[in-house]
């Protein structure tokens, strides 16, 4: 079976896969990085979003063999080594950006990709960017507020 080596959250990691193994499966089952969630497995829901070579992708719609040699960032690499949350994660907690939490890894990874491209997005830009991330609990307002807050914007004003 092919062996895939990736630099995941700054550490080189390898795992054996089949050609048909999806990146999401390799991360979760091969490398035990279960923070990346599989919601729909049909590339609709975005719970499995990770960054591959710096851009957001749905890891359930990419083959693990395609990621051989790539730099991959997952939700596990977002907090500091001491466990303190990064600014986006903290904002999700502060602004009630999650209820059940299942979609949150993908939401945080998409938010982080957005803020890298567009550090001060408008509310509409946040909503547009989250088109491929589905949340069934929050109604999105808390998530949008969290991302606006993480970008350093005043949420009360931005939400008007």
């Amino acid at each position: 079976m092919p062996n895939v080596t990736m630099t995941i959250n700054g550490r080189e990691m390898s795992t054996e896969v089949e050609n048909r193994t999806l990146l999401s499966t390799a991360l979760r089952e091969g490398l035990k990085l279960t923070g990346t969630h599989i919601g729909c497995d049909t590339s609709q829901c975005g719970a499995c979003v990770v960054h591959v070579d710096g851009v957001a992708v749905k890891s359930c719609s990419m083959l693990a063999v395609e990621a051989d040699g790539a730099t991959v960032d997952t939700i596990e690499g977002q907090a500091s080594p001491d466990g303190s949350l990064n600014v986006i994660q903290q904002a999700f907690q502060d602004h009630h950006g999650l209820q059940c939490g299942f979609c949150t890894p993908g939401m945080v990874m998409s938010a982080s990709a957005l803020l890298k491209e567009n550090p001060k997005p408008t509310e509409q830009e946040v909503r547009d960017y989250l088109e491929g991330n589905i949340c069934r609990c929050t109604g999105y307002q808390g998530i949008v507020n969290a991302i606006l807050a993480a970008s350093g914007q005043d949420v009360a004003i931005a939400a008007e």
């Binding site: 957001a56 719609s61 990419m62 998409s110 491929g132 991330n133």
Partner: peptide, 9 residues
């Protein structure tokens, strides 16, 4: 087209 993650692939 699609959403941002789809457009990246």
């Amino acid at each position: 087209i699609g959403d941002p993650a789809v457009r990246n692939r």
